[in-house]
Write a protein that binds this DNA or RNA. Structure first.
Length: 422
DNA sequence: TCTGGGGTCCTAGGACCC
DNA sequence: TCTGGGGTCCTAGGACCC
């Protein structure tokens, strides 16, 4: 049976999440900003129409007079993550196999489903809208790459009613001839430029290019994309998420850090957060890396960046990871610079199982086995950092800005909307 | 004048994605 | 004053080994 891959993707997902609980935002231009209120990372149609681009630095563009009425929000990941879960729920109850791809996108296995696919996808879309309150588009075809393309076409052509079927090769060809190769999933700006220089401008040009040449320009990755566009499925449906390979916590600061004790706090904070993520996923890390750097955009300001990494005895203990991270940080820190960002990255991940290791173990090993779960339980119940190592500081004046954060409408009891009827 | 071949593992860097 | 964060995969090159 020929496979049919579908891709459902939320429209302006973060903005749509904000609109669910603030109906006044309907029809208004809305943007959601990245961490630290830095860049625009989600825009509604109305905001796009005003010329706001993905990744535009907000502090630079907000001064434009025509943007005065734009509603903007800091990222509220607790809300978006929960809305994503609801979206998944609706789909999982209606489609045999759903593969989450990102926070706002899911692949659907539509192979062999009875009835008219267009009707089915329309009603899926309606259900997500009605139950999870999120507007979406759905595209489908014989490969994941084609499904992605179909989804993009549905987004760009409102007259299609939010769905696009690229099963028919003749219909595909008409789009292939008209669309630039950079529209394809997996062809980024660098690859698009390479292809254009070699004379391949449209998707059709790319498909017709000799395979060895594609391989030479874009390696096996490009070769695979080309095959997928030809209708040969190379990217299978994945039922279970693959094992994580790395976990990171990196942040820009709300203001530059110039003092060692603040940088130490920041790294300890990131190590703490990374360790929490490790334990949530039942993993431990055998490799840790830290980095810091000054502001790459500040012309004329002295630049410094540093990084250091090391293998460690596999652990997911917050205290151990803080100690290691700070130890790694010391040699890369230099006085006299204005640091803008730092981070902690953990890799060589493995399941956190009991295993015989060092010949000499300390008492703290067995203590932390009790302490970490207790800390996690308390913080899960009463909120992040209800209890935390003192190393992460108390006030954290360097932490990221988040000046217009909406409420945690769905995940925090105090933030739930109240309705009154009488 | 002459200086092997083949394999593995690790890391850094680049490109991509959302 | 203020320009994100978190992932994946691939390749090239070096170290090392026999």
């Amino acid at each position: 049976m020929k496979p049919v891959y579908g891709l459902i993707d939320a429209n302006s997902f973060y903005c749509s999440c904000e609109r669910v609980f603030q109906p006044r935002l309907r029809l208004l231009p809305v943007v959601v900003l990245s961490n630290n209120d830095g860049c625009a990372i989600a825009r509604t149609t109305e905001a796009k129409a005003l010329g706001i681009k993905m990744g535009d630095p907000w502090h630079l563009i907000r001064k434009r007079p025509e943007l005065a009425a734009v509603e903007w929000f800091s990222s509220n990941y607790a809300l978006y993550g929960d809305m994503s879960r609801r979206m998944y729920q609706v789909l999982a109850e209606r489609v045999p196999r759903v593969e989450p791809y990102s926070i706002d996108e899911m692949f659907l296995d539509l192979t062999g489903l009875p009835g008219d696919l267009t009707e089915r996808c329309r009603s899926l879309r309606d259900d997500v809208r009605r139950i999870a309150k999120i507007p979406t588009c759905i595209g489908w075809g014989p490969t994941k790459t084609i499904a992605k393309l179909a989804n993009g076409i549905a987004k760009d052509n409102p007259d299609l009613g939010g769905v696009c079927d690229l099963t028919d090769p003749a219909i595909r060809d008409s789009y292939y001839a008209a669309l630039p190769v950079g529209e394809v999933w997996g062809i980024g700006s660098k690859s698009a430029t390479k292809l254009e220089k070699a004379g391949y401008r449209t998707i059709q040009d790319f498909i017709d290019a000799p395979v060895p040449e594609v391989r030479g320009l874009l390696t096996v990755v490009g070769e695979r994309t080309q095959a997928e566009l030809r209708g040969v499925s190379c990217l299978p449906f994945v039922d279970a998420p693959a094992d994580r390979k790395s976990i990171a916590c990196t942040r820009s600061f709300g203001r530059p850090i110039t003092a060692w004790h603040e940088m130490r706090e920041a790294i300890a904070t990131y190590a703490t957060r990374a360790a929490e993520k490790l334990r949530q996923q039942g993993l431990q890390a055998g490799h840790i890396a830290v980095f810091l750097h000054t502001n790459p955009h500040a012309k004329g300001e002295p630049w410094h960046s540093g990084q250091k990494a090391a293998q460690i005895e596999p652990t997911n203990d917050t205290m151990v990871l803080i100690t290691q991270a700070v130890r790694m940080l010391k040699p890369v820190w230099r006085d006299g610079y204005r640091y803008a960002k730092a981070g902690v990255m953990l890799s060589n991940l493995e399941p956190a199982v009991e295993r015989p290791k060092q010949l000499f173990f300390s008492l703290s090993d067995s203590q932390s086995k009790l302490l970490m779960p207790a800390m996690d339980a308390i913080n899960a119940r009463y909120g992040r950092n209800t209890i935390s190592p003192l190393a992460i500081g108390i006030a954290r004046p360097w932490s990221a800005r988040s000046r217009r954060l909406s409420r945690q409408f769905t995940t925090k009891l105090e933030d739930v909307l109240a309705a009154q009827a009488w």
